[in-house]
Design a binder for these strands. Structure first.
Lengths: 145, 145
DNA sequence: ATATTAGTCTACCAAATAAGTAGACTTAAA
DNA sequence: TTTAAGTCTACTTATTTGGTAGACTAATAT
């Protein structure tokens, strides 16, 4: 009667992106890493990963080099890139509602934000969530072996 | 090139649910409230709202009464029902990934949670988010007029 | 030069989910 | 026994998700 099929709030695409960034963080300062290398180690469909990495490049998180010896690499040191920035690049807003989103704000069609209780609770939630995601960086995403 | 169309992490359905619960909280102890009344005041499609409220009843958040003088009402006082419980009833998990969900946990297929950095960051995020959503109640969702 | 390597881009597709609708059915009150 | 109101099943339709195919561009090595 109440059957849920394991929904997550982050899409598969964002999960793949975070896994890939984690891998690139681990191999930072080793030069360009092949897409195929990331795909193999993190079990991500190759062509899908290509589009994800390209998108991260467009968002100034990654850089790339073509041809032999090429590949992808972080534009800045892992500690300089927040998890919030990475999620926003792939997923879009982090807030639970557009009317409390800092980076993707949109006014509610039918309620007054000054009096809306839902808005107030969601704004507090956003603050709590962002306190973590803005502070944590790609360095924190790295695996501890 | 980077066109987002105002995505929110909570579905329309959950937004409607929270609005409806907010309305029912405001009219708590006034007896049953008509679905049509809620729909009209909160601008929610009637038939869609019907199914949402029924679902909330199945999750023991609402009660109902049929026939004349009937309608929906909160099963407990607004202060007794957390926003987290309401969201879980409609949306499912609150955590960003299944592998850090308390109520809808699912193991990652391809990573070891003991070493996975992504898991660690998402667990911290979940804690921060839940600290708010478990503490806040339907009473906090009410509009302040 | 030119073959090879590797990222870039456009276009497409199928499955799943979200959002909403229709209409018959049940129960309670007047 | 009529009317009011929630319940339930079964759709439909639009959008998003999670991919794939294949041509194209740029850099390097020979």
């Amino acid at each position: 009667m109440f059957g849920y099929l394991a929904v997550a709030m982050l899409s598969k695409k964002t999960q793949y992106a975070l896994k890939a960034l984690s891998y690139l963080a681990e191999h930072y300062s080793e030069g360009p890493v092949l897409i195929a290398d990331i795909a193999a180690h993190k079990q991500i469909p190759l062509k899908f990963l290509e589009s994800i990495l390209l998108n991260l490049k467009h968002h100034e998180i990654l850089e790339s080099k073509k041809g032999k010896g090429g590949g992808y690499f972080l534009k800045q040191a892992p500690k300089k890139i927040s998890v919030a920035k990475a999620i926003r690049a792939v997923e879009g807003p982090i807030a639970l509602l557009p009317c409390v989103s800092l980076n993707f704000y949109e006014k509610c069609s039918d309620c007054d934000e000054k009096t809306c209780g839902v808005n107030k609770v969601m704004a507090l939630t956003r603050d709590a969530t962002l306190a973590v995601l803005e502070k944590k960086t790609l360095a924190d995403l790295m695996d501890r072996h």
